[in-house]
Amino acid sequence: MANIAVKRIKREFKEVIKSEEVAGGAIKLELVNESWTELKGEIVGPTDTPYDGGRFILEIKVPDTYPFNPPKIRFMTKIWHPNVSSVTGAICLDILKDQWAAALTLRTVLLSIQALLSAGEPDDPQDAVVAKQYKENYQLFQMTARHWTNVYAGGPNVITEFNNKVQRIVDMGIDEHRARVALSTFDWQIERATENLFS
């Protein structure tokens, strides 16, 4: 890996470790396999959002051309958000694409991703299904996002009604995650979700 990238990452790693956000437990960064090109990030869901109380793990791959090109980042923790793929964890965020600047750091990127959780952009979605729900039934979107945060990120909000519906479909022999995706996609209507799963 290019020396310039390694030096820069080492410096930024220290910056994150010393930051007030780390002290407050809002963000975290660690090395994977002692490599400076593969990192694991963690962000805490912002308060007053459906992600509140959840801990979200991010995979961070840093290219040799860093800091001139952005790191490749995706959510490892499943999340229901219009700008994150509910399937792959890919993130739609301008600074990770065409608005990247060499002055940005891993700390600012983690904080930007955290800020994205506070303010979704459904008009520039990564996940069209989530964006549609966000725009057409915001309250249901919030409940679904809270449910996913509880199940996948350890968030505190248990939505018993949703858990019961998932269980009903699991009892029909469908994998739990597939059942949850189908229900989330079809606005928690069991009939439509099962129709889709068994068609």
Results as ranks from 00 to 15, higher is better:
54 G>C: 10
55 R>V: 13
55 R>A: 06
56 F>D: 01
56 F>P: 09
56 F>E: 01
56 F>C: 06
57 I>W: 11
59 E>G: 09
60 I>F: 12
61 K>Q: 13
62 V>F: 10
64 D>N: 14
69 N>E: 09
69 N>I: 06
71 P>V: 10
71 P>H: 11
73 I>Q: 02
77 T>V: 03
77 T>C: 03
78 K>C: 10
78 K>E: 02
79 I>N: 00
80 W>R: 08
80 W>I: 04
83 N>E: 02
85 S>T: 08
85 S>Q: 10
85 S>K: 06
88 T>R: 04
90 A>S: 09
91 I>C: 00
92 C>V: 09
93 L>P: 02
93 L>G: 00
95 I>A: 00
95 I>Y: 00
96 L>I: 09
98 D>R: 13
99 Q>M: 12
101 A>H: 03
104 L>A: 14
105 T>F: 11
107 R>N: 13
107 R>I: 12
107 R>P: 04
109 V>Q: 01
111 L>N: 09
112 S>I: 11
113 I>K: 00
114 Q>A: 14
114 Q>P: 11
116 L>S: 02
116 L>I: 04
120 G>F: 01
122 P>T: 05
125 P>F: 06
128 A>W: 05
129 V>K: 14
130 V>I: 11
132 K>W: 12
133 Q>I: 15
134 Y>S: 05
136 E>N: 14
136 E>L: 11
137 N>P: 00
138 Y>N: 12
140 L>Y: 04
142 Q>S: 13
142 Q>G: 06
142 Q>H: 07
145 A>R: 01
147 H>E: 07
148 W>S: 07
149 T>F: 06
149 T>W: 08
149 T>L: 04
152 Y>P: 03
153 A>C: 03
153 A>E: 02
156 P>R: 09
157 N>L: 13
158 V>F: 09
160 T>C: 08
161 E>M: 10
161 E>Q: 14
161 E>G: 11
162 F>Q: 01
162 F>I: 05
163 N>Q: 14
165 K>T: 06
165 K>I: 01
167 Q>L: 15
168 R>G: 06
169 I>W: 12
171 D>P: 07
172 M>F: 10
172 M>E: 12
174 I>F: 14
174 I>K: 07
175 D>M: 11
177 H>D: 14
177 H>M: 15
177 H>N: 11
180 R>N: 10
181 V>K: 02
182 A>Y: 02
183 L>A: 08
183 L>S: 01
